[in-house]
Amino acid sequence: MTSSSIEVRALSKRFGAFTAVDAVSFDVRRGDIFGFLGANGAGKSTTIRMLCGLLEPTSGTALVAGHDIRRSPEKVKRSIGYMSQKFSLYEDLTVEENIRFFGGVYNMAAPDLASRLRWVLEMAGLRGREHSLTRNLSQGWKQRLALGCAVLHEPGILFLDEPTGGVDPVSRRAFWDLINRLSEDGVTVFVTTHYLDEAESCNDIRLIHAGRIVGAGSPSALKASTIRNPILEVECGRTVEAMDLLRREPWVRDVSIFGVNLHVGVVEEAEGRRRLAARLEQAGIPLRRIDRIVPSLEDVFLRRIEDSDKEAGR
């Protein structure tokens, strides 16, 4: 058996003249948390839907859990769990009825279902609420119940399509804790998201833009390969004025405002610090702090999209 849970080869999907996914190829290692990042409409959902057998590819192939998604979609379906941003539960059924329904849909034997039912209730923190109607649960609970229903049949691969939309930060953290535990237990997690802080929790990432993969690797590798020049975080007064000022300097690569600070990309760190301090002093802007920082995925993502658009002549 290969070490890849998912192998995608030149997978494309066209809707009429519109190409949603353009010949993407990648492998997902078993047990990884694999992040598929992109803006809305970049092709994330279309890809995940093809891999889950909800959508037929226009061309290309993919193996999911060793099964061809075109030739044996039924086998693929039995090996995967799927949860979408809608937390697709029956709102007019109780918590337990929802779990039992999905158990029935996957043909689970009664004793297995009984033990997994207890597991899901425990995992989602829903013990004692078995008989509450699902519509009365908070978003965070619905999310964890939906996750429980998706992994009820113990799939080896879990697909999560923007799983944290509309959920408060505490519940989001709890949810990611669950995802990490599943991954530790050997489940491959394929997650699409546009929250870049969530992407930091992934082992492996693909950046997708306009149906094409524009970046690949772990979060740290991506940062290292994309942004080679140092980035300095500058805390100073009159930030907007300072940004306009620095932008005109030849030794400055780029400047952007992050919160109350400036992120300044420079050619070389030591010289950059010196020139920066001098320039601000000359303009009479008080300088409080300069620190070298590690670029965020947001920096990476924006740079990659820019580069790809330049290449495509857009």
Partner: peptide, 17 residues
């Protein structure tokens, strides 16, 4: 609670069904 029952690897998954 999550850690307690181990999730099966994908090859073993469908067997129980």
């Amino acid at each position: 609670a999550v850690a307690a029952p181990t999730v099966r690897a994908e090859m073993a998954g469908p067997v129980r069904m």
